[in-house]
Nucleic acid binder design. Structure first.
Lengths: 243, 243
DNA sequence: CGAGCTATTGAGTAGTCTCAACAATTGTGG
DNA sequence: CCACAATTGTTGAGACTACTCAATAGCTCG
């Protein structure tokens, strides 16, 4: 459905995975030795475009981290259809699978690498490294906060504010690239934002006409004026310096 | 701000706490002995109307369960004001406190009893009873699902559907009382639903005129036709039999 | 009783959706 | 290479929903 015409990452150019892994917030505060032990329990899996991520529903929650690529976060609708409700970018942790979250499914977009640890191994791991459990629980809290922010966004924001918030969020989470590939069409953006595709199109065009963003192609965005985009989100906080 | 004119529970009439505690889903699957050990680590605290629940932000997440009464779930707004975004009823677990969720605060409405366990004691407890950790993690997942449902509700539902969903949710979570006290005025309902108080008022009146609910007083609701209310929520699922 | 709060109701408005037409882009086959 | 179909994006007009502003009703408390 979403065959990429422009690859997200240039084939052959592979990020140094170890570096990004060791720096993941799940492993913060751990000694080098603890990190080595922890990473030993994790495995890397590669998925192709459109592959659903298999998730064990019976066992206890366990961490899964997107190392490279992008994942579609979809929820099963009552009608049987699935609805996109977010993306997971590289470096982000997946929401825990389990009996209660069975309706949520992750699907790889392009080549995607996942770092994961099965539930039993993780249980043993946290016995040895309590800090790891605390970090994991905090990651779960982050997911909760994220969901809550999303709630406020959909409930209280106008169409323009929602679109600006999404663009800024994608841009920040991808490391503020000069040119950003949305990887989604207007209808899919609309699903995430709970707007029609026409409204999404109109709002993006308004931002383009204002000079806030440039659109080399419909789904490729250059953030020309981050401050102005931030203002359009309706949030009073200031933009942090790039890390 | 919300002094109650009608008490939520008749003073003097106290629910048998042990029963409700032992049946809480956090303790499901535990042997009687394990339950006894677990409950030994928990303490009960009583709060009065308007009391904020003190929550340690530094330590790891730990369980807190509302045993009796109702809690306001509020989030600090950028402007300094706090916004109501939900209620926690008896039998429900509080979202974990922590550095990331510091903005969320719980405030007792009327006399409220909380069952809680400090982080260190809980860490020891789960060493002994692994099942307890799994249950706790699943409870956190439930909070996540709840937040996600809320997201869909605010994004995709009409004013009528939101009001119907809230009324049904409150009714179910309170054990389907014949007459239900909302404990909130129209403005507060509007905060939760991201609607104006006028819109909330209009939708409730529509439900009253349709005979779906009766309103002995503005904030006291009798669900006359649950099926009809369910239909008004816009959700296709059928009403489960009362437990 | 009147003050103060909450709820209801009405009228007009702004913002988003629906429906529709059309443009731009991509892919396919000759 | 072009013609054509299919998909995706843009733009416009009218309808509808919820908001804003305003007036009034109902209740509680001193």
């Amino acid at each position: 459905m979403n065959a990429m015409t422009l690859p997200w990452q240039i084939p052959g150019h592979v990020e140094p995975i170890d570096l990004s892994t060791k720096r993941h917030s799940l492993f913060r505060g751990l000694t080098t030795r603890q990190k080595a032990i922890a990473l030993g329990a994790f495995t890397q899996d590669v998925y192709g475009d459109g592959d659903p991520i298999p998730r064990s529903r019976a066992s206890a929650p366990h961490p899964e981290i997107a190392l490279r690529g992008v994942l579609r976060k979809e929820v099963a609708e009552p009608g049987g259809a699935s609805r996109l409700f977010g993306l997971t970018f590289a470096g982000e942790i997946l929401s825990p699978a389990g009996p209660r979250t069975a309706a949520v499914q992750y699907i790889a977009m392009g080549e995607t690498v996942l770092l994961s640890c099965d539930a039993d191994a993780f249980a043993e791991l946290v016995e040895e490294i309590p800090r790891l459990r605390m970090n994991y629980l905090e990651e779960l809290q982050d997911r909760l906060c994220e969901a809550r922010r999303g709630q406020i966004m959909l409930g209280r924001k106008t169409a323009m504010q929602r679109v600006a918030t999404l663009l800024l969020s994608f841009w920040e989470r991808q490391g503020r690239p000069v040119e950003m590939d949305l990887r989604l069409n207007r209808a899919e953006l609309g699903q995430i934002l709970c707007l029609t595709l026409e409204t999404v199109s109109r709002q993006i065009k308004v931002l383009e006409k204002a000079g806030t963003v440039a659109l080399p192609q419909p789904s490729r965005v250059i953030i020309r004026d981050p401050q102005s985009l931030l203002a359009a989100t309706g949030e009073p906080v200031s933009l942090r310096r790039a890390a």
